[in-house]
Simulated scan of single mutants.
Amino acid sequence: MVLLKSEIVLNAGDKAPDFNLLGIDDKKHSFAEYKDYKAKLVIFMCNHCPYVQAKVDAINEIYDKFKGKIAMIGINSNDSTKYPDDSFENMKKFAKEKGLKFTYLVDETQEIAKKYGAVCTPDPFLFDKEGKLVFHGRIDNAMKPEDKPTEKTMILNIEKILSEKKIEKDFDPSMGCSIKWKSQQT
């Protein structure tokens, strides 16, 4: 398990790095294609992580609550050679089993995770209409897979963005498994 560190690549106000990644729908997707949404939520995630599995219902709740208003994009950057549970084919199975309706992309080169500064799964980044980072952090305040949340942090922050209110705390560390890098990062 990894707690997000203060070595953040993206800071509040920074523009989202664009990407062109393959989705489980077998089509390429870019950040730019979501420009008309009032907010965009990019979640670095994977299939096998117990922290992601524990958050699937909360992630699906976010999608269901805000579909049509925000864009949701899941990105799997894990090394699927060492972690076959995170392969592209298993991403398709995971999405079907868990009822994921949002875009789920594979970052085979891991370049996008590095550009965002993602370090764990899940690692959510919330952007405003202009594509500027407004919040980097947790889905909710349950920090262990077995914990029950008492605050829906991401939902509260999305509601603020949609009603054009300021998010006071732009970074609130998430906890999860480390991204499985192809070569060790220092």
Rank of each mutant, 00 (worst) to 15 (best):
I70Y: 07
Y34T: 04
N76F: 15
G137I: 04
D107T: 03
V52W: 13
H29F: 05
W181F: 07
G13I: 06
K166Y: 11
I112C: 02
K114W: 05
A54V: 05
K169T: 05
K98F: 14
K40C: 04
I24S: 07
G137Y: 07
L105S: 01
P173L: 00
I73V: 15
K40H: 01
K98M: 12
D57T: 01
Y63H: 14
A118F: 00
A16W: 06
I155S: 10
I179S: 08
I75F: 01
N141C: 03
D147V: 03
L133Q: 10
A54R: 02
I158V: 05
D36C: 03
S30Y: 08
D25L: 10
K15M: 11
F88S: 09
K165T: 13
K27C: 08
I161W: 14
M1A: 15
F66M: 11
N47H: 12
F66V: 07
V134T: 02
T153Y: 02
S30F: 02
K115C: 11
D107F: 09
K5R: 08
C46W: 08
D26C: 10
E164M: 13
N60V: 04
C177A: 09
G74A: 08
F88Y: 13
N157M: 03
P17F: 09
Y34F: 13
V52S: 14
P50M: 11
M45Q: 15
D172W: 01
Q184S: 14
D147K: 03
K93E: 07
K132W: 08
M72R: 02
V134K: 09
K132Y: 00
L22N: 06
K38A: 12
P124S: 01
K38D: 14
Y34N: 10
Q184A: 10
S178Y: 09
Y63R: 08
I112H: 05
I155C: 04
M154I: 04
P84N: 03
P50A: 13
D79T: 02
H48V: 08
G23L: 11
E168F: 06
K132R: 15
F171W: 12
Y37H: 15
D107V: 00
S30G: 06
E108K: 15
D107K: 05
E151Y: 04
A54S: 11
I73E: 00
K40R: 03
P17H: 06
P122L: 15
